[in-house]
Amino acid sequence: MSNLVKIENGVAAVATDQWTLVQLPATQVEERKQAGKVVLFKLTGESTVTEEQIANTVIPATGKIIVPLSVFVERNNELASRIAQGEVGVWLATHELLEYLIQQQADLNTLPIIAVFVERFADGRIFSLGTLLRTRYGYKNELRAFGDVLRDQLFFLKRSGYSSFAIRKDRSAEEAIASLNDFSQPYQGAVDEPKPVFRRYNRGA
């Protein structure tokens, strides 16, 4: 059974997944992906994915695919016709930079799906990435969280602009849906409701 929760027209339900996730092959230099290297990465512009990994990534010949950001950028020519047909989405890890995606793809709405991979649920960068994709770059299509996605983060993910959630496989997606509505009137403006409570509700004087 699918473990994907999807919000459509404001209603959350378990949905079947039409997308195939394309993974990078494993590498020897795994530690470069460590979350803490990000500052260094940003300062040096160093890549966290090797040329070899990108070249060796196996892209299925047909069907709807979500490819790693680095593959999307480096092998874009190969994918061009499928991108035009709306068959290609992009995924990025929480330490990757959105600027890298924007440089390649100025109009993000060409992409039917963007997915963000969170390795450990406690990595809150995923919230800022969702917020930036929606508010800074005007992305309107499906925004998915996958990886270590657990129900107690769903409310925050939804508020940060995510519309689908691949719940970790050992947990119930059905049960997780309840947590999307943990709070009915949040205080601050965020992606799903840009107005803070003091601009949308008459709190009297």
Binding site: A122, D123, G124, S128, T131, Q153, F155, F156, R159, Y187
Partner: peptide, 9 residues
């Protein structure tokens, strides 16, 4: 700051 979604973690 209470349950600010972007800054929860």
């Amino acid at each position: 700051s209470t349950f600010h979604p972007e800054f929860a973690l």
